[in-house]
Nucleic acid binder design. Structure first.
Lengths: 184, 184
DNA sequence: GACAAAGTAGACAGATCTGTCTACTTTGTC
DNA sequence: GACAAAGTAGACAGATCTGTCTACTTTGTC
């Protein structure tokens, strides 16, 4: 296996385990056993478990952005296109691998001082707000567009967390209904 | 110290530590050192760390319910009284001990199989929805009242998580603005 | 086919952390 | 003041888990 795909393979396996079972409850030994690689190989690609955590967050975000963009692209580019993000979430929720927001989960597990991870997560959330804003180009006033994007972002985030917490999809339909009201 | 207040003392100290530094990152030894009690005393009051976790969640919820009710009671009991929950949150956010939602934090840290903790958290969230509903008695239709309570609950939850995540209060003002629009 | 780079299997050091147990002391009540 | 209940200080077993290191093998390239 070429070096770059070994790294990628580790990231994918670790991501699955971290997301499913939690970062602290997934040991390095589990990652290497599941990856079928030696421990020294893992530490040849990553300096520490922390570094794998960053790669995990980036990988989840990368896949998420790709998927949600592709999903929204199938809808007509009008003022209501943004509502597609809730339909995307509904599909994600129905998937048996759904386990809430990786950012929120990870932030709860790491020490508060870990600035690298905190910054990465804030970056991801800001990119999501920007993406939502890009779907709201019907709104000509820049401040209003930004405000609306933030509001829909809040609803989306809530829908993710709460559908996971309650193990039910009413938060998704409810959030979508509010978003629909907001964009008029 | 009488038995009941020893127990209460442990719960308060453990709650501070769990909420501030996280459940998994707070060891039993830290709890007893901070409480100034012996380890055997702790295990005389609680069978396991897990049991302290339940007591922690219940204690945080109890204080929260008492405080938010008292806060909302100072406002006129009209259709807009429910908006006070966002002002309450704003005050809580300004407090330097604010550290997001203890339920979300704890759920992220415990194994998925821990049903007792999961049930406790769902119970707390349902009580919050019921409390919000009790502030919406202006809405006569029962289904509509329930729906609205859930919507405002989603906004409140989002405001808690996101103000913590972004270390900024715009999620609170933004969520309040949406809630205000919903109740008309 | 020589050689470097990458990978292997797993022992092990060292740092956690929970929960038990021991031998003893303090406190509160009759 | 006797006695039980509650608390103390801390050793220790046993179960983690991360990251290093050793001695060796495989792979890819010139």
């Amino acid at each position: 296996m070429p070096r770059s795909s070994t790294r990628q393979h580790i990231v994918e396996v670790a991501s699955d385990l971290f997301y499913r079972n939690g970062y602290n409850r997934t040991g390095i030994n589990e990652v290497i056993a599941e990856s079928g690689i030696a421990k020294a190989t893992l530490y040849n690609h990553f300096r520490s478990k922390d570094e794998i955590c960053i790669a995990y967050l980036q990988y989840k975000h990368e896949v998420f952005v790709k998927d949600i963009k592709a999903y929204c692209d199938t809808r007509p580019a009008n003022g209501r296109q943004v509502l597609a993000i809730f339909d995307f979430l509904e599909a994600f929720f129905q998937d048996r691998d759904f386990n809430g927001c990786w950012c929120i989960k990870t932030v709860a597990e790491i020490p508060r001082e870990d600035e690298r991870i905190r910054k990465e997560i804030q970056k991801q959330k800001n990119q999501l707000i920007n993406f939502i804003e890009s779907l709201l180009m019907d709104i000509k006033d820049e401040d209003e567009r930004r405000d609306t994007a933030r509001q829909i972002y809040l609803l989306y985030e809530s829908a993710v967390s709460e559908s996971h917490l309650h193990q039910a999809d009413w938060p998704i339909t409810s959030a979508k209904a509010i978003a629909s009201k907001i964009i008029g």
